[in-house]
Design a protein around this nucleic acid. Structure first.
Lengths: 138, 138
DNA sequence: TATTGTTATACTCTATAACTATA
DNA sequence: TATAGTTATAGAGTATAACAATA
């Protein structure tokens, strides 16, 4: 066949990455989206739920279930914004930070293994290109 | 933040690619999965539905709706396999081939544009790495 | 009995529109 | 009136099990 299309390759690789992430997140009691939310929280500074929804590309109504669960498990807290009490500021708890760090380390190790067979120069170019493509489409 | 994770980057890029494919497929009256099925058909040789399901990574029960629609629109035909009449052999019609070729050309042009800003060496390495990663995880 | 394709069912995920409380 | 967060509802997508025809 022709060279496979980008969409085809990306979806296959995405499926593989998710399959390898699943046991790690399961062990931490996290769903895929919980992890995305925790990661976004670690990278932002005291976001409102609306800002957090935008940062994760998740709809604000769908974010709520994740936050409910994460809050019930003590990984995040929601506090009213004194400046505008319609907003709720979301932040990581120490427990949430710990869980996130553990997952992140395991996932980075998994990714290193996944990429291990690549030629080192190709690996670097791959990561550089991927980052650039995502930056461009912002 | 740390370097973004592979899963994060892949999902963002995947989302962008799908967003750019959508108008092309809409114009052809195809859903995303219809296109995947047509592509797999062009690359395989007279597959049964089970083989086609495996090739697309789609469950056999979910494939049926796509085939029903594609057959109703005259893009594929299902014929009983004379050698084993439990099987149904799926094949592209000339009309299906035409639609597929038009979409494929448009999508390849879209991808070329998407990758146009990359350094040429990085672009080649990116495609090489992506292909290798998908091959490995087969 | 096992397998291919199909249908039926329940379950999850998603999108949309109300609702509340604040502004 | 408009906005942030929440809830409710309906729709799409998915997984699973059963079924008919054939081997």
């Amino acid at each position: 066949m022709d060279r496979p299309e980008l969409g085809f390759l990306l979806s296959r690789l995405m499926r593989e990455v998710m399959a390898r992430e699943k046991p790690i997140l399961d062990a931490a009691g996290l769903e895929m989206w919980d992890y995305a939310v925790l990661t976004a929280l670690a990278d932002s500074d005291a976001p409102t739920q609306a800002q957090l929804a935008a940062a994760t590309g998740r709809d604000k109504t769908r974010l709520i279930g994740n936050l409910d669960r994460l809050e019930a498990e003590g990984m995040v807290v929601r506090q009213p914004d004194p400046a505008d009490r319609r907003n709720r500021i979301v932040s990581l708890t120490p427990a949430g930070s710990r869980v996130l760090r553990r997952c992140r380390e395991a996932i980075e190790a998994m990714e290193a293994e996944l990429l291990a067979d690549l030629d080192p120069a190709d690996r670097a170019a791959f990561q550089r290109a991927l980052t650039a493509l995502v930056e461009n489409d912002r």
